Simulated scan of single mutants.
Amino acid sequence: MIEFKDVSKTFHLGKREVQAVKNVSLTISQGEIFGVIGFSGAGKSTLLRLVNMLERPTSGTVWMHGVNISTLSAKELRAKRRNIGMIFQNFNLFNARTVAGNIAYPLKLAGYSKQKIAERVNELLQFVGLEDKAKDYPDQLSGGQKQRVGIARALATSPDVLICDEATSALDPDTTSDILRLLKKVNRELGITMLLITHEMHVIQSICDKVAVMEDGEVIEFGNVFETFTNPQHPTTKRFISSVQQDLPSQEVLREWQDKSNNSKLYRVIFTGEITNNPVLSQVTKRHDVDFNIIYGSVQELQAQLFGNLLVSFTGESANVNQVLTELKTLVQIEEVNIHES
Protein backbone atom coordinates (compact mmCIF):
# COMPACT_ATOMS: atom_id res chain seq x y z
CA MET A 1 0.00 0.00 0.00
CA ILE A 2 2.60 2.56 1.16
CA GLU A 3 6.26 1.67 1.01
CA PHE A 4 9.38 3.59 1.97
CA LYS A 5 12.52 2.20 0.34
CA ASP A 6 15.80 3.45 1.86
CA VAL A 7 14.34 6.94 2.21
CA SER A 8 16.45 9.81 3.51
CA LYS A 9 15.70 13.52 3.78
CA THR A 10 18.39 16.13 4.36
CA PHE A 11 17.70 19.82 5.01
CA HIS A 12 20.30 22.51 4.38
CA LEU A 13 20.23 25.24 7.00
CA GLY A 14 22.84 27.72 5.87
CA LYS A 15 26.12 25.79 5.91
CA ARG A 16 24.68 23.12 8.16
CA GLU A 17 23.11 19.86 7.03
CA VAL A 18 20.35 18.21 9.07
CA GLN A 19 19.43 14.61 8.29
CA ALA A 20 15.80 14.49 9.37
CA VAL A 21 15.16 10.99 7.99
CA LYS A 22 17.89 8.37 7.55
CA ASN A 23 17.57 5.29 5.36
CA VAL A 24 14.03 4.39 6.40
CA SER A 25 12.40 1.30 4.89
CA LEU A 26 8.82 0.56 5.95
CA THR A 27 5.75 -1.11 4.46
CA ILE A 28 2.23 -0.08 5.49
CA SER A 29 -0.38 -2.60 4.36
CA GLN A 30 -3.85 -1.89 3.00
CA GLY A 31 -6.37 -1.24 5.78
CA GLU A 32 -3.78 -0.97 8.57
CA ILE A 33 -3.58 1.63 11.30
CA PHE A 34 0.15 2.23 11.38
CA GLY A 35 1.64 4.34 14.17
CA VAL A 36 4.93 6.24 14.11
CA ILE A 37 6.12 7.41 17.51
CA GLY A 38 9.11 9.43 18.62
CA PHE A 39 10.17 12.34 20.77
CA SER A 40 10.38 15.85 19.32
CA GLY A 41 12.99 16.01 16.57
CA ALA A 42 12.86 12.26 15.88
CA GLY A 43 11.90 12.82 12.23
CA LYS A 44 8.36 11.48 12.35
CA SER A 45 6.68 14.63 10.96
CA THR A 46 9.16 14.80 8.10
CA LEU A 47 8.42 11.15 7.33
CA LEU A 48 4.72 11.99 7.22
CA ARG A 49 5.28 14.87 4.78
CA LEU A 50 7.12 12.49 2.45
CA VAL A 51 3.93 10.47 1.97
CA ASN A 52 2.13 13.24 0.13
CA MET A 53 5.34 14.78 -1.22
CA LEU A 54 5.06 18.01 0.75
CA GLU A 55 8.74 17.11 1.15
CA ARG A 56 10.58 15.13 -1.51
CA PRO A 57 13.17 12.56 -0.43
CA THR A 58 16.84 13.38 -0.83
CA SER A 59 17.39 9.71 -1.65
CA GLY A 60 15.29 6.58 -1.80
CA THR A 61 11.72 6.23 -3.06
CA VAL A 62 8.17 6.37 -1.71
CA TRP A 63 5.58 4.07 -3.30
CA MET A 64 1.79 4.10 -3.11
CA HIS A 65 -0.40 1.49 -4.80
CA GLY A 66 2.63 0.36 -6.75
CA VAL A 67 3.37 3.88 -8.06
CA ASN A 68 6.64 5.64 -7.29
CA ILE A 69 5.16 8.96 -6.18
CA SER A 70 8.65 10.44 -5.82
CA THR A 71 8.74 10.80 -9.61
CA LEU A 72 5.24 12.21 -10.24
CA SER A 73 4.82 15.56 -11.97
CA ALA A 74 3.07 18.42 -10.15
CA LYS A 75 -0.19 17.69 -12.01
CA GLU A 76 -0.02 13.96 -11.29
CA LEU A 77 0.79 14.66 -7.66
CA ARG A 78 -2.25 16.93 -7.25
CA ALA A 79 -4.46 14.11 -8.50
CA LYS A 80 -2.78 11.60 -6.18
CA ARG A 81 -3.24 13.87 -3.15
CA ARG A 82 -7.02 13.65 -3.54
CA ASN A 83 -6.65 10.09 -2.31
CA ILE A 84 -4.78 11.24 0.81
CA GLY A 85 -6.69 12.88 3.67
CA MET A 86 -4.93 14.95 6.34
CA ILE A 87 -5.90 15.53 9.98
CA PHE A 88 -3.92 18.18 11.85
CA GLN A 89 -3.00 18.78 15.48
CA ASN A 90 -4.43 22.29 15.54
CA PHE A 91 -7.45 21.49 13.33
CA ASN A 92 -6.57 24.05 10.57
CA LEU A 93 -10.21 25.05 10.09
CA PHE A 94 -11.36 28.21 8.29
CA ASN A 95 -12.84 30.43 11.02
CA ALA A 96 -14.86 32.42 8.46
CA ARG A 97 -16.59 29.27 7.16
CA THR A 98 -19.29 27.25 8.89
CA VAL A 99 -18.81 23.61 9.81
CA ALA A 100 -20.57 22.64 6.59
CA GLY A 101 -18.46 25.12 4.65
CA ASN A 102 -15.23 23.67 6.00
CA ILE A 103 -16.24 20.14 5.03
CA ALA A 104 -17.40 21.32 1.60
CA TYR A 105 -14.16 23.14 0.79
CA PRO A 106 -12.14 20.21 -0.67
CA LEU A 107 -15.23 19.11 -2.60
CA LYS A 108 -15.48 22.53 -4.26
CA LEU A 109 -11.80 22.38 -5.18
CA ALA A 110 -12.39 18.96 -6.72
CA GLY A 111 -15.23 20.33 -8.88
CA TYR A 112 -18.20 18.54 -7.31
CA SER A 113 -21.70 19.85 -8.13
CA LYS A 114 -23.65 21.75 -5.45
CA GLN A 115 -26.06 18.85 -5.06
CA LYS A 116 -23.24 16.31 -4.63
CA ILE A 117 -21.50 18.61 -2.15
CA ALA A 118 -24.66 19.01 -0.05
CA GLU A 119 -25.26 15.24 -0.04
CA ARG A 120 -21.69 14.43 0.90
CA VAL A 121 -21.52 17.08 3.64
CA ASN A 122 -24.75 15.79 5.24
CA GLU A 123 -23.46 12.23 5.06
CA LEU A 124 -20.18 13.17 6.78
CA LEU A 125 -21.87 15.27 9.45
CA GLN A 126 -23.92 12.23 10.43
CA PHE A 127 -20.85 9.98 10.34
CA VAL A 128 -18.88 12.16 12.79
CA GLY A 129 -21.92 12.99 14.96
CA LEU A 130 -22.24 16.71 14.19
CA GLU A 131 -25.61 16.83 12.39
CA ASP A 132 -26.75 19.75 14.55
CA LYS A 133 -23.58 21.82 14.04
CA ALA A 134 -23.69 22.39 10.28
CA LYS A 135 -24.31 26.15 10.55
CA ASP A 136 -22.00 26.77 13.51
CA TYR A 137 -18.57 28.37 13.15
CA PRO A 138 -15.32 26.88 14.54
CA ASP A 139 -15.17 29.42 17.39
CA GLN A 140 -18.46 28.00 18.68
CA LEU A 141 -17.09 24.46 18.92
CA SER A 142 -15.12 22.53 21.52
CA GLY A 143 -11.72 21.08 20.68
CA GLY A 144 -13.18 17.63 20.14
CA GLN A 145 -15.90 18.99 17.85
CA LYS A 146 -13.30 20.90 15.84
CA GLN A 147 -11.32 17.71 15.34
CA ARG A 148 -14.48 15.90 14.23
CA VAL A 149 -14.91 18.59 11.60
CA GLY A 150 -11.28 18.07 10.61
CA ILE A 151 -11.88 14.34 10.23
CA ALA A 152 -15.03 14.91 8.17
CA ARG A 153 -13.16 17.33 5.90
CA ALA A 154 -10.30 14.84 5.48
CA LEU A 155 -12.84 12.19 4.42
CA ALA A 156 -14.72 14.47 2.01
CA THR A 157 -13.15 13.24 -1.23
CA SER A 158 -13.25 9.56 -0.13
CA PRO A 159 -9.49 9.06 0.28
CA ASP A 160 -7.99 5.61 0.72
CA VAL A 161 -5.18 6.90 2.95
CA LEU A 162 -5.60 9.09 6.03
CA ILE A 163 -2.62 10.84 7.62
CA CYS A 164 -3.04 11.92 11.24
CA ASP A 165 -0.46 14.44 12.45
CA GLU A 166 -0.61 14.46 16.29
CA ALA A 167 -4.41 14.45 15.91
CA THR A 168 -5.11 14.16 19.64
CA SER A 169 -2.24 16.01 21.33
CA ALA A 170 -4.26 19.23 21.73
CA LEU A 171 -7.17 17.42 23.42
CA ASP A 172 -7.98 16.38 26.98
CA PRO A 173 -7.91 12.64 27.86
CA ASP A 174 -11.67 12.03 27.59
CA THR A 175 -11.93 13.84 24.25
CA THR A 176 -8.83 11.99 23.03
CA SER A 177 -10.59 8.69 23.73
CA ASP A 178 -13.65 9.86 21.76
CA ILE A 179 -11.54 10.87 18.76
CA LEU A 180 -9.61 7.60 18.83
CA ARG A 181 -12.89 5.68 18.80
CA LEU A 182 -13.99 7.72 15.79
CA LEU A 183 -10.72 7.00 13.97
CA LYS A 184 -11.19 3.28 14.64
CA LYS A 185 -14.69 3.60 13.19
CA VAL A 186 -13.25 5.27 10.08
CA ASN A 187 -10.78 2.43 9.65
CA ARG A 188 -13.27 -0.35 10.38
CA GLU A 189 -16.27 0.90 8.38
CA LEU A 190 -14.53 2.65 5.50
CA GLY A 191 -11.44 0.45 5.21
CA ILE A 192 -9.14 3.46 5.06
CA THR A 193 -5.42 2.93 5.69
CA MET A 194 -4.12 5.25 8.41
CA LEU A 195 -0.64 6.58 9.09
CA LEU A 196 -0.66 8.07 12.55
CA ILE A 197 2.15 10.24 13.94
CA THR A 198 2.27 10.76 17.70
CA HIS A 199 4.50 11.16 20.75
CA GLU A 200 1.86 9.54 23.00
CA MET A 201 2.25 5.81 23.54
CA HIS A 202 -1.32 5.36 24.78
CA VAL A 203 -2.53 6.44 21.32
CA ILE A 204 -0.45 3.67 19.74
CA GLN A 205 -1.71 1.21 22.36
CA SER A 206 -5.35 2.16 21.78
CA ILE A 207 -5.79 1.86 18.03
CA CYS A 208 -2.67 0.90 16.06
CA ASP A 209 -1.95 -2.46 14.45
CA LYS A 210 1.77 -1.83 13.93
CA VAL A 211 4.24 0.72 15.22
CA ALA A 212 7.59 2.17 14.17
CA VAL A 213 9.69 3.92 16.82
CA MET A 214 11.90 6.74 15.51
CA GLU A 215 14.94 8.43 17.02
CA ASP A 216 17.34 10.86 15.34
CA GLY A 217 15.74 10.22 11.95
CA GLU A 218 16.04 6.44 12.11
CA VAL A 219 13.52 3.67 12.73
CA ILE A 220 15.00 1.98 15.79
CA GLU A 221 12.23 -0.57 16.33
CA PHE A 222 9.31 -1.81 14.27
CA GLY A 223 6.64 -4.46 14.63
CA ASN A 224 3.21 -5.59 15.73
CA VAL A 225 1.94 -3.44 18.63
CA PHE A 226 1.34 -6.41 20.95
CA GLU A 227 4.81 -7.83 20.36
CA THR A 228 6.43 -4.41 20.74
CA PHE A 229 4.63 -3.75 24.02
CA THR A 230 5.32 -7.16 25.50
CA ASN A 231 8.93 -7.47 24.39
CA PRO A 232 10.49 -4.07 23.58
CA GLN A 233 14.12 -4.21 22.47
CA HIS A 234 15.40 -0.63 22.33
CA PRO A 235 15.79 1.56 25.46
CA THR A 236 13.74 4.36 23.85
CA THR A 237 10.89 1.97 23.14
CA LYS A 238 11.04 0.78 26.74
CA ARG A 239 10.78 4.39 27.93
CA PHE A 240 7.67 4.98 25.83
CA ILE A 241 6.04 1.78 27.05
CA SER A 242 6.86 2.53 30.69
CA SER A 243 5.02 5.84 30.29
CA VAL A 244 1.70 4.02 29.80
CA GLN A 245 2.23 0.77 31.70
CA GLN A 246 3.48 2.25 34.98
CA ASP A 247 5.27 -1.06 35.42
CA LEU A 248 7.35 0.03 38.41
CA PRO A 249 6.32 1.61 41.73
CA SER A 250 8.13 4.69 42.98
CA GLN A 251 11.73 4.49 44.18
CA GLU A 252 10.50 5.16 47.74
CA VAL A 253 8.20 2.12 47.62
CA LEU A 254 10.95 -0.05 46.11
CA ARG A 255 13.47 0.99 48.76
CA GLU A 256 10.98 0.36 51.57
CA TRP A 257 10.20 -3.10 50.18
CA GLN A 258 13.90 -3.89 49.82
CA ASP A 259 14.61 -2.91 53.44
CA LYS A 260 11.78 -5.13 54.73
CA SER A 261 12.66 -8.09 52.50
CA ASN A 262 16.33 -8.32 53.50
CA ASN A 263 17.46 -7.28 50.02
CA SER A 264 15.60 -10.11 48.24
CA LYS A 265 15.83 -10.17 44.48
CA LEU A 266 12.95 -8.83 42.44
CA TYR A 267 11.82 -10.31 39.11
CA ARG A 268 9.60 -9.04 36.33
CA VAL A 269 7.28 -11.76 35.03
CA ILE A 270 5.45 -11.14 31.77
CA PHE A 271 2.46 -13.26 30.78
CA THR A 272 0.92 -13.15 27.32
CA GLY A 273 -1.99 -14.90 25.66
CA GLU A 274 -3.79 -17.90 27.17
CA ILE A 275 -1.22 -18.52 29.89
CA THR A 276 -2.40 -15.30 31.55
CA ASN A 277 -5.49 -17.22 32.68
CA ASN A 278 -3.48 -20.04 34.28
CA PRO A 279 -2.11 -20.09 37.87
CA VAL A 280 1.45 -20.56 36.64
CA LEU A 281 3.22 -18.88 39.56
CA SER A 282 1.24 -20.83 42.12
CA GLN A 283 1.73 -24.18 40.39
CA VAL A 284 5.48 -23.85 39.77
CA THR A 285 6.40 -22.48 43.20
CA LYS A 286 4.29 -25.11 44.96
CA ARG A 287 6.14 -27.88 43.15
CA HIS A 288 9.47 -26.62 44.45
CA ASP A 289 8.39 -25.57 47.96
CA VAL A 290 8.93 -21.85 47.28
CA ASP A 291 6.72 -18.93 48.29
CA PHE A 292 6.13 -15.94 46.02
CA ASN A 293 4.99 -12.41 46.67
CA ILE A 294 3.54 -10.08 44.02
CA ILE A 295 4.94 -6.62 44.76
CA TYR A 296 3.42 -4.66 41.89
CA GLY A 297 1.85 -5.07 38.46
CA SER A 298 -1.30 -5.47 36.42
CA VAL A 299 -3.13 -7.50 33.80
CA GLN A 300 -4.51 -5.54 30.87
CA GLU A 301 -6.03 -6.09 27.45
CA LEU A 302 -3.95 -5.17 24.41
CA GLN A 303 -5.21 -5.82 20.87
CA ALA A 304 -7.84 -8.23 22.22
CA GLN A 305 -5.15 -10.24 24.06
CA LEU A 306 -4.34 -10.34 27.77
CA PHE A 307 -0.96 -9.09 28.94
CA GLY A 308 0.22 -9.51 32.51
CA ASN A 309 3.23 -7.61 33.86
CA LEU A 310 4.09 -8.44 37.46
CA LEU A 311 6.96 -7.72 39.87
CA VAL A 312 7.53 -10.78 42.03
CA SER A 313 9.90 -11.93 44.77
CA PHE A 314 10.56 -15.55 45.76
CA THR A 315 11.32 -17.00 49.20
CA GLY A 316 12.81 -20.43 49.78
CA GLU A 317 15.99 -22.48 49.55
CA SER A 318 18.37 -21.01 46.98
CA ALA A 319 18.46 -24.22 44.92
CA ASN A 320 14.66 -24.41 44.91
CA VAL A 321 14.31 -20.78 43.83
CA ASN A 322 16.73 -21.44 40.96
CA GLN A 323 14.60 -24.40 39.89
CA VAL A 324 11.52 -22.16 39.91
CA LEU A 325 13.28 -19.57 37.76
CA THR A 326 14.48 -22.25 35.32
CA GLU A 327 10.99 -23.70 34.91
CA LEU A 328 9.29 -20.31 34.63
CA LYS A 329 11.64 -19.32 31.80
CA THR A 330 10.12 -22.11 29.70
CA LEU A 331 6.62 -20.73 30.26
CA VAL A 332 6.81 -16.94 30.55
CA GLN A 333 9.22 -14.03 30.14
CA ILE A 334 11.12 -13.46 33.36
CA GLU A 335 14.09 -11.27 34.23
CA GLU A 336 15.71 -9.87 37.32
CA VAL A 337 14.99 -6.19 38.02
CA ASN A 338 17.89 -3.97 39.09
CA ILE A 339 16.07 -1.72 41.55
CA HIS A 340 18.75 0.98 41.60
CA GLU A 341 18.91 1.26 37.80
CA SER A 342 15.10 1.31 37.61
Rank of each mutant, 00 (worst) to 15 (best):
R81A: 03
S142G: 02
I220P: 02
D172W: 01
F292L: 13
V24S: 11
P235E: 02
S261K: 06
R49K: 15
L48D: 07
G111W: 04
T230A: 15
L50M: 04
V290M: 14
V321R: 13
E256S: 06
H340A: 09
I197L: 02
G43A: 10
L248D: 04
V7R: 14
H288D: 14
N102D: 05
G144R: 14
Q323I: 09
L196F: 04
D247N: 11
V269G: 11
Q323T: 10
E200N: 03
A110K: 02
G31S: 09
G129T: 09
I204L: 10
F307S: 13
D160W: 10
S142V: 03
A134Q: 15
N83A: 07
E166M: 04
V337F: 05
K265I: 01
H202G: 07
T98W: 04
D6T: 07
L195G: 14
N102C: 01
L26M: 08
V186Y: 05
S70F: 09
L26T: 01
T10L: 01
D6F: 10
E76R: 14
L302G: 03
S206I: 05
K135Q: 15
V253H: 11
D216A: 13
V24I: 12
K5T: 10
D6A: 15
V67F: 02
N92K: 14
R287L: 13
D209W: 03
L54S: 00
T230I: 09
A100L: 05
M201W: 07
V290D: 15
W63Q: 01
R188T: 07
N262Q: 15
K146S: 09
K265F: 05
L328V: 14
V186H: 01
A152F: 06
K22T: 13
V128R: 12
V51K: 00
R16H: 12
T58P: 00
K9V: 00
Q303R: 14
F127G: 05
L306G: 05
E119I: 03
I339K: 14
L13D: 09
K5W: 01
T176L: 09
I192K: 02
E189G: 00
D216C: 01
D259I: 12
L47F: 08
L162K: 00
L182I: 08
I241D: 05
G144H: 12
N277H: 15
V161S: 03
Q147N: 02
A74F: 10
G41Q: 01
E327I: 13
S29K: 15
I28G: 03
A96E: 09
V213S: 06
